[in-house]
């Protein structure tokens, strides 16, 4: 079985009892180690071996064909592989597609949606700066000041906390008018996105990665 399929299935390593049909078989860890041993270029392992698996599970999640549990275990498998590739990131042999600053808005501690976006973006080759939850406008601004090319993703769970998105967008705009800002979360809608002047809204965690793949120049 190929690496991408193992990522998609969440077969972390040989000892992982999931999926039941692959018990005892090599997983993402072993295949990634093998690919490195065979001196396959790290960027190729990432782009052609691992990322297609995350793309596949993300697409299936957005179509409702799989569930968050499936995404979480796929992301865990991906993380194990990324751990093996870390030296190549550090040496510069692998280049991230870009940087995204992520955070749940002020007053809001909900993190499931944000974490899903983080996993998907990492799996899509992005460097993610996760500011966590209850993130103030100042924290977003500071993070963008430290990564001026970064795009920003802001999440909210509640109707009340969603309203903080507007001031965060405003502060970010004042600070760096060219920063692209995307929003998501249960109460958020396209009309709210337009109302607060964000650059985009995605109703599922895979939406941003998909759009960036389709038209990276347009969106970044």
């Amino acid at each position: 079985m190929d690496l991408a399929r193992l990522v998609e299935l969440g077969k972390i390593d040989k000892n992982t009892p999931h999926p039941p049909a692959l018990i005892g078989q090599d997983g993402v860890l072993e295949l990634t180690q093998l690919a490195i041993k065979k001196e396959i270029k790290a960027q190729i392992i990432l782009n052609e071996g691992l990322m297609p698996g995350m793309h596949a599970i993300g697409e299936k999640l957005s179509r409702g064909e799989v569930f968050i549990t499936d995404m979480l275990i796929a992301a865990r498998a991906m993380n194990v592989a990324l751990g093996q590739l870390k030296p190549f990131f550090l040496s510069g042999e692998i280049q991230a597609k870009g940087t995204i600053v992520l955070g749940t808005v002020k007053g809001d501690l909900h993190d499931i949606g944000k974490n899903l976006v983080k996993m998907i973006m990492e799996g899509d080759g992005w460097e993610v700066k996760d500011l966590g939850t209850d993130v103030s406008e100042e924290q977003f601004v500071e993070a963008v000041n430290n990564s001026t090319d970064a795009i920003v993703g802001i999440s909210a769970l509640l109707t009340t906390t969603m309203l903080h998105m507007g001031s965060a967008v405003q502060r970010l705009r004042e600070n760096n008018p060219n920063t692209k800002i995307y929003i998501g979360g249960a109460p958020v809608s396209q009309s709210f996105c337009e109302e607060i002047g964000a650059d985009g809204y995605f109703s599922n965690p895979h939406g941003l990665a998909r759009e960036l793949r389709k038209a990276p120049k347009l969106l970044i």
Binding site: G107, D108, L109, H110, I112, T133, D134, L157, T160, T161
Partner: peptide
């Protein structure tokens, strides 16, 4: 369970 206006399902 740290709480503000919402709380994390992971906490």
């Amino acid at each position: 369970l740290a709480e503000k206006e919402s709380r994390s399902l992971n906490s």
